[in-house]
């Protein structure tokens, strides 16, 4: 495997050698990632390459067979997804998973929950601190919605939103958890060209305003090549290339993975 010399700066998200297999299928093999704070890293690969599985491993939906994951120097291994979110790892989902019967505002407010410290008894008595907490949550949620142009839809059920809005709401919701690292799973899927252009700007501004590191799965190469500083390419669960967009595009193995290996008569053209 071609190891690219490691990035300058301390690693925020440090993934070493994680693997998982389902039955006989090696979904992800020996995946490594070093993501410094405030950087944008792309994760690409053909369908079924294991990209979303990597996300599920990072966020604790699956437990890896081998390997370790550190976030900001603290190990995440063995923690539940909620604990990882609390440690500063937030994600969006490839097939949108909003809370469909709740309002747009509530979707974001729920994500603020893990930063609250009050007690349930306080909520039942509606104590002063509980009230302050609710106000702060509301303020924060509205700020985020305003930033994502969703404020005028805040009282609508999230299931009724147009597709692009649902995608953006997912990002807003993920940001409301106050993450250090943000994992975006195909945020541009199903968006029209205009929305995709806006999304690029949005992702950039999120990085600047929230100082988060972003790991991005995306099929739209326009988006990936434009905004990612580094890219990892997966194929059949293995990392076949890592580097800057320019490097990755020149890599013969990447081209083979996407176009089919010219040496292979089954896929060659």
């Amino acid at each position: 495997m071609t190891r690219i010399p490691s990035q300058p700066g301390p690693a925020l998200l440090d993934v070493r050698g994680i693997s998982i297999s389902f039955g006989g299928l090696r979904a992800v093999q020996d995946f490594n990632l070093t993501l410094p704070g405030g950087r944008l890293h792309g994760l690409i690969g053909p369908n079924g390459a294991g990209k979303t599985t990597v996300f599920n491993l990072l966020t604790g939906v699956y437990a890896p067979d081998t390997g370790t994951i550190d976030l900001g120097g603290a190990p995440l291994d063995g923690l539940k997804p909620s604990a990882r979110a609390a440690a500063g790892l937030a994600r969006t989902f490839q097939n949108i998973r909003l809370f469909p019967d709740l309002s747009v505002l509530d979707n974001v407010r729920i994500a603020c929950h893990l930063r609250t410290t009050g007690s349930m008894a306080g909520a039942m008595l509606r104590s002063a601190s509980n009230l302050g907490q609710e106000r702060a949550i509301l303020e924060r949620a509205r700020e985020l919605l305003a930033m994502f142009d969703l404020l005028d839809r805040q009282h609508e059920d999230s299931r009724g939103l147009p597709y692009g809005d649902q995608r953006r709401l997912e990002i807003a919701r993920a940001l409301a958890t106050g993450p250090k690292a943000l994992l975006l799973d195909e945020p541009a899927a199903g968006m029209n060209p205009q929305e995709k252009v806006e999304l690029r700007g949005l992702i950039r501004s999120v990085m600047e305003r929230f100082h988060v590191a972003i790991l991005l799965i995306e099929h739209d190469m326009g988006v990936v090549m434009d905004i990612c500083e580094r890219i990892t390419v997966l194929d059949y669960g293995r990392t076949i290339a890592e580097g800057t967009p320019a490097e990755v595009q020149r890599d013969p193995r990447v081209i083979a993975a996407y176009l089919g290996d010219p040496a292979d008569p089954a896929t060659g053209e």
Binding site: T59, V61, K80, P81, S82, A83, A85, A86, A90, R91, F93, R97, L98, F99, P100, D101, L102, D106, R109, I110, A111, C112, H113, L114, T116, G118, M120, A123, N130, Q133, E134, I137, R173, A174, A176, T177
Partner: peptide
């Protein structure tokens, strides 16, 4: 309250709730 919304999020989508830091 924020706790009630945490409850509701479990009903809506348990996996998403967990990912958003709700200790389901």
């Amino acid at each position: 309250s924020t706790f009630g919304r945490a409850f509701l999020s479990i009903r809506e989508d348990e996996i998403a709730a967990e990912a958003m830091g709700v200790r389901t």
